[in-house]
């Protein structure tokens, strides 16, 4: 009964915990796994439900729901699976309460890895040259924010301290700067 009480349970990978839960049916394994994701799931639910208590109810409800029917699903990567299930659950709750669902059209497009590799140590000359040119073309606040974030590895709050920009502005400078850079670099490289 206390098999799961071994130390080291917390070092197991998500999928290991998942398969242990499936084979033993011991709730402790799934409890441990879900425990890890509570901050993420709670934040996600807050985003959609906009209400702390409702979001907490959703987190607990999801735990019960998932623990009961987990074995009906073929889960490859628990994290992405949980993301879509939790999001669905919250949207479902909104529908039930007949709230209007605000669809966020400002969702950031998932960047390809290519963009992030631009700022890595080893990059090819052509891309580096393109990046340098494009950075020069960016409006000043975007260029400063981008370079502090990606090259100096500063957080948003650090950049706010450093530059005196407002937090919201820093985020949108980085967002817009990234978009501009991407377009510009693709143009440069295809030429």
């Amino acid at each position: 009964m206390h098999k799961a009480g071994q130390p080291g349970k917390s070092t197991l990978a998500d999928e290991e915990l998942l398969s242990l839960y499936r084979t033993t049916g011991n709730a402790e394994y799934f409890g441990e796994l879900y425990h890890r994701y509570i901050p993420l799931v709670y934040g996600l639910c807050l985003k959609y439900l906009q209400h702390a208590e409702n979001a907490q109810d959703a987190v607990m409800q999801l735990y019960e729901d998932l623990a009961a029917k987990l074995d009906r699903y073929d889960i490859k990567v628990f994290r992405t699976w949980l993301y879509s299930v939790a999001k669905n659950h919250c949207l479902q709750m909104l529908r039930k309460e007949k709230h209007e669902i605000r669809v966020d059209f400002d969702v950031q497009i998932m960047e390809s890895d290519m963009f992030f590799h631009l700022f890595d140590e080893r990059r090819d000359e052509e891309q580096f040259e393109a990046l340098r040119k494009c950075m020069e073309q960016l409006p000043e606040p975007q260029r400063i924010s981008i370079s502090k974030f990606f090259m100096d590895e500063m957080s948003y709050a650090d950049i706010v301290d450093d530059t005196g920009y407002r937090l919201k502005s820093v985020k949108s400078y980085i967002q817009n700067g990234k978009r501009n850079l991407k377009i510009c670099i693709e143009k440069q490289i295809s030429q």
């Binding site: 901050p39 993420l40 807050l46 985003k47 959609y48 702390a52 979001a55 994290r79």
Partner: peptide, 14 residues
């Protein structure tokens, strides 16, 4: 990571 991003948005909005 969309999961993390949406979670952070949630914490900031409430």
């Amino acid at each position: 990571d969309a999961f993390l991003r949406e979670a952070l948005e949630g914490f900031e909005s409430v």
